[in-house]
Design a protein around this nucleic acid. Sequence first.
DNA 1: ATCTTCGGTCGAACCGATTCGGCGAATCGA
DNA 2: TCGATTCGCCGAATCGGTTCGACCGAAGAT
Lengths: 341, 341
Amino acid sequence: MNIGEIAKRAGVSRSTVSYALTGKRPVSEETKRRIMTVIDELDYRPNASARALKEGRTRTIGLVIPPAGRRLTDMQLGFVASVVDAAARADLDVLLSPSGGEHDRSFERVVTGRRVDGVVLMEIRLEDDRVARLLQSGLPFVGIGRTRHPEDMSWVDIDYDTLIAKCVHHLADLGHRHLALVNRNAELVAAGYGPGHRAQAGFDRAVTERGLHGVRVCCGDDPQSGQSCLQQLLAEQPELTAIATINEAAVSGMYRALAEAGLTVPGDFSIAGVAAQHWAENLHPPLTAADVPADEMGARAVELLIQRIADPATAHRHLLVAPPISLRGTTGPAPGHRRAV
Amino acid sequence: MNIGEIAKRAGVSRSTVSYALTGKRPVSEETKRRIMTVIDELDYRPNASARALKEGRTRTIGLVIPPAGRRLTDMQLGFVASVVDAAARADLDVLLSPSGGEHDRSFERVVTGRRVDGVVLMEIRLEDDRVARLLQSGLPFVGIGRTRHPEDMSWVDIDYDTLIAKCVHHLADLGHRHLALVNRNAELVAAGYGPGHRAQAGFDRAVTERGLHGVRVCCGDDPQSGQSCLQQLLAEQPELTAIATINEAAVSGMYRALAEAGLTVPGDFSIAGVAAQHWAENLHPPLTAADVPADEMGARAVELLIQRIADPATAHRHLLVAPPISLRGTTGPAPGHRRAV
DNA sequence: ATCTTCGGTCGAACCGATTCGGCGAATCGA
DNA sequence: TCGATTCGCCGAATCGGTTCGACCGAAGAT
């Protein structure tokens, strides 16, 4: 079922079959018809490997996701879905590489074996080996997220710094004086996970500006952890009345802890965060949050990547997303008096 | 950076470099060392397309997921994660194809362009064009799910029929006489989605056997739909005291509807279902459910696929999973008296 | 009538690996 | 000492496409 077989049966040369298929040179209608008939009969499709070998491109992009075992957050799933979707619309296939820190075989295969024309990289650290590796290899790539030195690469990212600061200001405006930042899990933050650190920076800045009392905690990315984390916070910080968070997966557990402590939201306690829009809306109660357009960001990343593949010499482009905070009723005025200890 | 360049710099022929790398023929230690030095210096890796072309295999498997736009259930995410993970362990890459019903370009590319050595197919319908297409193409594949005629293919699947029947029997044992089956969304079921139909069959059979009153409804795969679906059920079926469901994504919404109706779980109302273990545990309250080992099933599918790729002539293998029901406290004795209408 | 242009086609080179047959030198057995 | 192995390596063919240069005949220009 190769091109030679088609050529033979259609009584033409292999190159003519190729030109009939690609249209890169004129082929007479009559000949084209004959070729197509044979192709339909034999259900022939050009071999992707052979084409990739000759053309020097694979029409495939790599998508590097967090390593196996780690469950993706809803936001990350939104990224994956929109990347896959955008790629499909551009007739690109997506090769998945679940790879974390250092020398991951899957990552190496994808990057170095010319299996893909470019890469979308997720969950980037402030210092990221994979970014270094990609820069060194010269393979076009776009980050969803950015390193400490983001000028050297193209990326789309969420402005966690600004957004968490906004959350803090919003809560401060409502009279809250004693807040906590609930971050992602400790290992991730310790490993230099960008959003974790930038959220901290924004939190610290806003808390200082407004003269508030703020504490920062890390929390596992699941409801259970959210629950126990908030239980502990409530116990240790009796004056706490509000939380800002980037840990969407833990929010439902925080709700639970509050309910069990007899606190109502937003009557007794306020929560504001940064979360995928879909997720914030589906929480109960719906979360007041900066609605991250995850479905759009993946598509943007693919757009940037396609440009870089087409012309790797173009200047790097950056897209910092800072959506407005949608008020959905989990934030309200600070309780007039302090809770009993 | 091709093999010829390495050969030239190491002062050997291209074939010697190849043999040094693959070990398929002996190469002297001295020569091997010289070659490896050059390879490390130049950071050379064999071109995957060239290798695939010559070898006739790509060391890649395709993973066909539900089409773009549809959000995956937690169980499906579990499948994807475990497939990707298992593939990585076997040094296989995964090419993602989000494709639904008929002639999807992405699906055609993956299947027909010899881009993959085999395919894992998700969300299979009773009559499935993609299965027909794969059978016709001769490409090895394994389903997570099965068609109406499952003898012709290899698959791993959940025994929704048996499991939902078990749920019904469990609820009947507790004294419930009036139950509902909450199915997945109507379009999916109408399109011949296997689990939807098999769950119905099991539900009908068990309800008949036990002489119960049972109704079946479809429900969107999200909390909102779960909530309104149950609201409607409660209004239309005042005697309803229990639900069996395969719609894990809707359960939290059902909880909400019950709470708003002033019904406690399991005091006034019972729910049992089939769900990914991780999901059932993380619901609040945790759901009494048959714990589907999604993390394992994907790995099994990959195992089967690897076998089929190695020897496409082997008999088809089937794995029907019917995990026991974990009692987590969402089912209890039917309320002694009927609720007021 | 001759020259040019152009549409349509072919043959051959090429992409970068793997793999088979063969060849020279060293080793072994008799 | 001579033939048979064995070891280590090379050259060439091959996988299945794309693409470039060339060729031929017909149409248009001069």
